[in-house]
Write a protein that binds this DNA or RNA. Structure first.
Lengths: 214, 214
DNA sequence: CCGACTTAACTAACCGGTACGTGCATTGGC
DNA sequence: GCCAATGCACGTACCGGTTAGTTAAGTCGG
């Protein structure tokens, strides 16, 4: 009788929904203030949940942070899988990856600050996470595949390490966006206008293609 | 490189020395824990100073942070000036800059986390800092000069924006190093062995030269 | 179908520790 | 002697985490 309705009445008590709200609020708060600056009370308030619920479901602030991080990585890896890069010709595949990475970072700035925060803590929350390895392996394999196909087709030069390539693709987008505030001061320029963003994406694609071309 | 190294008789009360010790301790603590995670008591203890001194000389934790940041930028800009890149041929100058940037980041990892921390706070501590502009302008002008000389000599292609170039040079070193902890997990590889570091530097030089060459 | 019972979701109020910041007394250097 | 430099000890607010209790939702005997 409980599952029959297609649109059930909003339940007063809903464990899953509460956890989702807590995770969403935590992602925002951790992204905004870092692990040290984030306030558990703020997360509870924004999740419209009681602080006790956070400790009930996630044990501690740090375990909540770990979960938020893992979910963030799962999100981007899932989105990458959906690109089906292995079905594209090598040059298109790489261009697509650079463009996707850029747009994902732009649309999900929280991911960037979460990763920064975790690195400030020397990745101690993700260390030993089996889930992280499961997420990373297929991704790396895919880039390796694109590279191999490109070399075979004679469009890419041989000997390029897929790890270095990956790091570079991430770096040129990531750095621009995370450091946009000090960047605006150093370069005395608004780096976030539509024009500036389009220019940077084009520049990044050019950088990667020149790096790879035979 | 801010140590006094002079052999004056150790004064019991030395305002300048105390301030230097506080700044050095603050740089370490802010770099390690971020602005929110840093503890003023810890800074005082490590500076072998009383917490009261910190508030006497720097008014607040945030103003101390601002000062630490400005000093950090001053350090790297000063070091860059000493390269005298304008006296080198364009290609050597750029290679030297890439190598210097990489080595400076490696030798001064605190700079990286300080900048990250400031960007988490949307650069509100450096906003409006006259000192920052004074530091940045000559640096940008120098890179612009190298680029122009390279184009005139026919070794670099024309139309490259010095700001984009600069951001890219910083990015490919900075990202690798700040994200080395999550990177080690994602790529299942130690990114900090001597071999890995040398490989990365070579890769970065190659990336930039391919980007610039006519 | 119903009401007593059980379990899980949820809340309010609180605690011990800690963190930034200060008032005030003291002391060394010129 | 005067003032800057320093030290002590505290105030006040806050923060992560917990204790003790309440209420909604499922469950089962009758």
């Amino acid at each position: 009788m409980t599952e029959t309705a297609t649109h059930e009445k909003p339940r007063i008590r809903d464990a899953e929904a509460t956890q989702r709200r807590i995770l969403a609020a935590a992602r925002k708060e951790f992204a905004k203030s870092g692990l040290g600056g984030a306030r558990v009370d703020t997360i509870a308030r924004r999740a419209k949940a009681n602080k006790r619920m956070i400790y009930h479901y996630f044990k501690s602030k740090e375990q909540l942070f770990t979960r938020v991080l893992e979910d963030a990585y799962a999100d981007i890896r899932t989105a990458e899988q959906k690109l089906h890069l292995d079905e594209l010709d090598p040059e298109t595949a790489i261009t697509t990856l650079v463009r996707f990475t850029w747009r994902y970072y732009l649309a999900n700035p929280e991911f960037l600050t979460l990763v920064n925060s975790e690195n400030l803590h020397r990745a101690r929350h993700l260390k030993g996470s089996a889930r992280m390895h499961e997420l990373s392996r297929p991704f790396l394999g895919m880039v390796e595949g694109i590279l191999a196909r490109g070399v075979a087709a004679g469009v890419f030069r041989p000997g390029i390490d897929p790890v270095q390539l990956n790091i570079t693709i991430a770096a040129i987008g990531y750095y621009y966006l995370t450091n946009r505030f000090t960047g605006a001061i150093v370069y005395e320029r608004d780096l976030m206008t539509k024009e500036a963003l389009d220019t940077r994406l084009a520049f990044n694609i050019e950088t990667i293609l020149r790096l790879l071309r035979a």
